[in-house]
Design a binder for these strands. Structure first.
Lengths: 188, 188
DNA sequence: TAGTATACCTACTTACTGGTAGGTAATCAA
DNA sequence: TTGATTACCTACCAGTAAGTAGGTATACTA
């Protein structure tokens, strides 16, 4: 079970494709070509595409949660924590990708329903984490907003997801940079 | 050239499919089945899928611009105008669809590049219109925000697009309703 | 050393994709 | 009334999708 196992390489390739071309915009043949292996070998690790997609989302969620923990642990101050959060999306954009969760949400009507609960949990995890940060920031006098932290957290996440879509389509990272600053300014 | 011409019915069907299953998530066969005609008849009206997609986006843009004009003409007050704008997205959501522009943006990596300029124009039209409304609202003392109207317009649109994705995936119209109110409250 | 599991492979199937060739019935203009 | 145009049709094509059957080499295990 080495680090760059074929299984992981398949997931990496599938994720890159899913984040650029859509959840139904790539095939086993695409991955096989990129990795220099055969389609059947991918079916060995992920018998059906549903299996691959399930694992893709699960891995993405786990990775995201671990990033959130790192931010809480290593970054001081709610404003800087929100900045770091938004920074993750900016990094995704600079790789010409959008969020896997956002991509999946856009394709939810064409996806097996078994994936939906995990996707919903993904969004809830994000919103809950953001709401916690915002609550703490307000109590500490760093942030200033009216209404619930939950609703501002939803708006913050929605704007990042939508901004990622727009900036990626417009091929304009500046759009996203300004959006990011506007969102954080509004909370102060 | 009657109102419900086959050509229009094809576009209607394609649009519904594109807004629910993705821009690459439907086929000529799907449309043919829904309309009770043959695939070849669709090719008669739209020789290639690129032709269909181009027309789809063009029609959507035109329709949207005409809605914006109606709002400016018939609705008084920037706050109410923004409410009506957001209302259009809520209607889309209640049809279990997302914005065609947002869907297209999410699939931009898998779409012919010929479509991109029109998509970029779509977003710019929206942002410019919103920025105009916001500028007027600020001058009239109805709205209150710091920073440029352009950046708040971008944030507003991005949040609606992202919120549509999330609320649709979560099958929760309440999420979108609260988001909408939060966005407008923040501008006051 | 014999048996089993792992991780790949070639070669295939079925179903669906966008697209084309060519035919037909109805309408319309000269 | 002839000839063109419109709006459909049947029947097909090559390519690609996900998925399967069955083979092979290597490693681990009893």
């Amino acid at each position: 079970m080495e680090i760059n196992s074929t299984r992981d390489l398949i997931l990496d390739s599938a994720q890159a494709l899913a984040q650029t071309r859509g959840f139904n915009g790539y095939s086993y043949a695409d991955i096989a070509l990129e990795l220099g292996i055969r389609k059947a070998s991918i079916h060995y690790h992920f018998p059906s595409k549903n299996d691959l997609e399930t694992e893709l989302l699960s891995r993405y969620r786990t990775g995201f949660v671990s990033e959130l923990q790192k931010i809480e642990l290593n970054v001081n101050g709610s404003i800087e924590q929100l900045q770091r959060y938004a920074q993750m999306y900016a990094t995704t954009l600079s790789n010409n990708r959008i969020c896997l969760g956002g991509m999946m949400a856009s394709d939810v009507g064409a996806l097996p329903e078994t994936l939906t609960p995990s996707l919903v949990s993904f969004f809830k995890e994000q919103v809950d984490w953001l709401a916690n940060i915002m609550d703490a920031g307000k109590k500490a006098g760093e942030l200033n907003f009216s209404g619930s932290a939950q609703s501002h957290a939803t708006a913050f996440l929605a704007a990042l997801q939508g901004g990622l879509l727009m900036a990626n389509a417009m091929e304009d990272e500046g759009v996203f940079k300004r959006l990011r600053q506007t969102l954080i300014n509004t909370l102060q």
